[in-house]
Computed example of a mutant assay.
Amino acid sequence: MLQVEEIETCYGLSQVLFGLSLSIAAGEMVSLMGRNGMGKTTTIRSIMGLTPARAGAIRFGGRDVRRLASFRIAQLGIGLVPEGRQIFPNLTVRENLVAAASNRLQSPDPWTLDKIHALFPRLAERGANMGNTLSGGEQQMLAIGRALMTNPRLLILDEATEGLAPLIREEIWNCLSMLKAKGQSILVIDKNVEHLTRICDRHTIIERGRTVWSGTSEQLMAAPDLQHRYLGI
């Protein structure tokens, strides 16, 4: 579904990604891991066209998207849950959910407001509240719900549970497990190796803007030295 091949991305004269590659198949859940500052968010921004890669290839559904505008890439079926959530603070919870809702790809069983409320009952309770009055956990639920309302072929989550209370984290992980079981393709960034290895099919680890390892959960769990080298503090 998604193929990222040898991309290079810069911020001005500062290069961040150096020939980075990763891939995601339909129905697969893949993690992107690495220490802070190694290029994970820049990778997501490159995929979404927010910080365009200057070299390499990015294909989604077989189509070259590296030079497309961000909104065109989103319209092709990529839903982003960005780092920091970035919900609309001056819109209500309901307005946040319906603002970008669409079913451009004609899914036979699309996400609706009722289904999002069933997934996150707290959003139904807070429907009339403004976005900036929600807790961090509620904002993350809202950001996920907003992305799902676009009925994406691929869901990308940047720092899925960062800064959330333990109970809310568990709720988010349970949500992701349910989405995977439904066949949703997912690319997730997070620091919780235990949860990632429990629910993801494959993992890509990056170090200083380069792909240094890619493999299955079983392979990652069998290599504690690898975890210490690239993921330990």
Rank of each mutant, 00 (worst) to 15 (best):
R169D: 01
A100P: 06
H203A: 07
C10W: 14
L68W: 14
G27E: 04
L2F: 12
F88P: 01
R35E: 07
R104E: 04
S217E: 15
S107L: 11
I116G: 01
G163V: 15
M48I: 00
M141V: 15
P52K: 07
F88V: 03
R202S: 08
G232M: 13
L50W: 01
W173A: 03
L187A: 10
N103E: 05
Y11F: 13
I199H: 10
E5H: 08
E194F: 07
P152W: 07
C10Y: 14
L119C: 12
H117P: 04
D201Q: 10
N151V: 00
L187G: 09
L20P: 08
R67C: 10
D64Y: 02
L68K: 07
T51Y: 05
A222E: 15
E83M: 02
L32F: 03
G62F: 12
R67E: 13
R63T: 12
A124E: 14
K40T: 03
I186S: 06
R208M: 08
D109R: 15
M130G: 13
R210Q: 14
G183N: 11
F60S: 08
L113K: 00
L91W: 08
P166M: 03
H203V: 06
I206V: 14
I205T: 07
R59F: 02
L167G: 04
I144G: 00
D225L: 06
D225H: 06
A160L: 07
N129V: 00
V81K: 08
R59A: 05
I7Q: 09
W173K: 02
L226E: 05
M48S: 01
R126V: 02
Q3W: 09
G56D: 09
T133E: 08
I168W: 07
A69F: 09
N90V: 03
V81N: 12
A99E: 03
S21F: 01
R72S: 14
L226V: 12
L17T: 12
A165K: 09
S217L: 13
I172W: 06
Q86V: 10
A165T: 11
Q227F: 00
I24P: 11
T197G: 12
L113S: 01
E125N: 04
M33C: 12
V30P: 01
L97N: 03
T133Y: 09
L13W: 06
G232E: 08
L80P: 05
V212C: 14
H203C: 09
G84A: 06
P89G: 08
G209I: 10
G163L: 11
I233L: 06
M1K: 15
H117T: 14
I144L: 00
A25Q: 15
A26I: 15
R45L: 10
Q139K: 04
E5A: 07
G27F: 11
I78K: 01
R146P: 06
Q219H: 08
K180P: 10
L2A: 09
